[in-house]
């Protein structure tokens, strides 16, 4: 019987100590961010989906259609097409499509790219209603990025 009462006392004490912890949290500064209305800046290291880099000097992308990203991708989510054109050395990029539904953001394509033509974007707010919304035409995106 004495065990019952001593447990009652130590138990109540432990609950009060626990309540003390939560009370401290109640009066401490708020850490919650009301997400859609306020946002925390993401670091530039965030690996979003890949994007073609815009070369400042030439004003266009640096892809030379070597297809190394397409070959190294474990998910086969990159499609690159190029064609030979008169008077232009090497191939000209005609299509750079990323199927982001398959991408697992491993970054092997970015590492394999010799001219450093692709990089991660910082976009993390991606939501859509159809799969097609996540097939990105990166060539179009880099042209639009003026």
């Amino acid at each position: 019987m004495s065990g019952y009462f001593s447990e009652l006392i130590t138990g109540s004490k432990s609950l009060l100590v626990g309540l003390g912890v939560t009370f401290k949290a109640l009066i401490s500064p708020v850490v919650t961010v009301q997400y859609p209305r306020e946002k925390i800046d993401v670091t530039s290291a965030v690996r979003g989906h890949i994007d073609l880099v815009k070369d400042e000097a030439t004003g266009t992308h640096r892809c030379m259609v070597c297809l190394s990203c397409m070959k190294v991708c474990p998910c086969q989510c990159i499609t690159v097409q190029g064609e030979k054109r008169e008077g232009v050395k090497g191939k000209v990029l005609t299509l750079f499509a990323l199927d982001f539904t398959k991408c697992s953001l491993c970054g092997l394509c970015v590492e394999s790219c010799k001219p450093k033509a692709i990089d991660f974007s910082n976009e993390y707010e991606l939501a859509g209603f159809t799969r097609d919304e996540f097939v990105f035409d990166l060539l179009k995106r880099v042209k639009e990025r003026a």
Binding site: V42, T43, A45, V46, R47, S104, L105, C106, G107, E111
Partner: peptide
């Protein structure tokens, strides 16, 4: 870890 690896959960950091 996000600032280093670029992701928050499924890291692909070691090579």
């Amino acid at each position: 870890l996000e600032a280093i690896t670029g992701s928050r959960l499924t890291y692909c950091y070691f090579r």
